[in-house]
């Protein structure tokens, strides 16, 4: 009994954090005392104080406002990257699961090829060739997640297509497209939600990493990874600059992990997609 309540608690903590962060992102312009790009709002590199909760950076920009506005970017990046990954992964995974013969063989080979690389490396390589920008980082992170999503969907489809409702669909004469969209898709939605919520955390981490090394968000965008890179340059004089964006990243990722874990346990206690 105690065990279940604890699990429940984790999910609630995660949800509360998420709601706070989403709220902060939506109301950032109202909550932030300064514009995130306004310079010289106070002395440069000043430590945290009541006027500047998180201190100021080299250009005198208010860190609290920047971190707050960064929440928008981060959630946006996570959302787009996950959407790209989930949509392309679902398409590939469903076709691979539905088709037989060489189509499946070919698709699965391609997925395995990409999957054998660490995701961050795939993302890095893509960004390197697409050119550094936040949009490209989102695309790269989304694509680097595709093989993972595709594999999950593929294995779910294999299970689903062996169930009677799928055969009955065949019997009444549904074509491949109808079978996939009307019969399979509704049944793969629950696992899809779980992997998507867990995918959020990895996507946000990866995108922040790319921005940190300068291949993602470009200045003056207040993306948290980019803020950390700024903080790194001033870590001797103003170590607090890199503290808060880091906390922000940890909070968001933690929230998504907690919610995703709880969801996966709730929807399917036996199977664990988490690696």
């Amino acid at each position: 009994m105690k065990f279940f309540r604890l699990r429940y608690l984790n999910a609630i903590i995660g949800l509360v954090i998420l709601i706070v962060i989403v709220g902060a992102a939506i109301f950032a312009p109202m909550l932030a005392p300064f514009s995130p790009e306004r310079m010289f709002t106070g002395p440069r590199l000043s430590p945290p104080s009541w006027a500047h909760l998180f201190g100021t950076d080299t250009l005198g920009r208010d860190m609290f406002s920047r971190v707050l506005h960064g929440a928008r970017l981060t959630l946006y990046v996570g959302f787009i990257a996950v959407t790209i990954g989930v949509v392309s992964g679902t398409i590939v995974g469903m076709i691979a699961g539905y088709a037989v013969g060489w189509v499946r063989g070919f698709l699965m080979r391609c997925i395995d090829l990409l999957y054998s690389f660490p995701e961050i490396l795939v993302a890095l390589a893509l960004v390197a060739f697409l050119g550094p920008s936040l949009d490209n980082a989102m695309i790269a992170v989304g694509i680097s997640r595709t093989p993972f999503f595709a594999r999950v969907i593929y294995s779910v489809v294999l299970v689903e297509r062996s169930k009677p409702y799928f055969d009955s669909g065949r019997v009444v004469g549904a074509g491949p497209v109808r079978l996939m969209l009307r019969y399979l898709l509704p049944n793969i939605i629950p696992p899809l939600i779980v992997v998507a919520s867990l995918g959020f955390s990895t996507a946000i981490l990866a995108a922040a990493g790319l921005s940190f090394i300068g291949l993602g968000a470009q200045p003056p965008a207040p993306e948290w990874g980019a803020l950390l890179a700024d903080g790194r340059d001033n870590m001797r004089l103003a170590p607090w600059l890199m503290l808060y964006p880091g906390f922000a990243i940890i909070l968001v990722v933690l929230a998504f992990n907690l919610v995703g874990d709880a969801l996966s346990e709730y929807l399917d206690p036996r199977q664990r997609w988490r690696r």
Binding site: N10, S201, G209, F212, R232, G246, I250, L254, N257, L258
Partner: peptide, 14 residues
Amino acid sequence: VLGVSVPAFWLGLV
């Protein structure tokens, strides 16, 4: 879970 959520580069900086 907390550990999985920490970005490696941030931990490195700290």
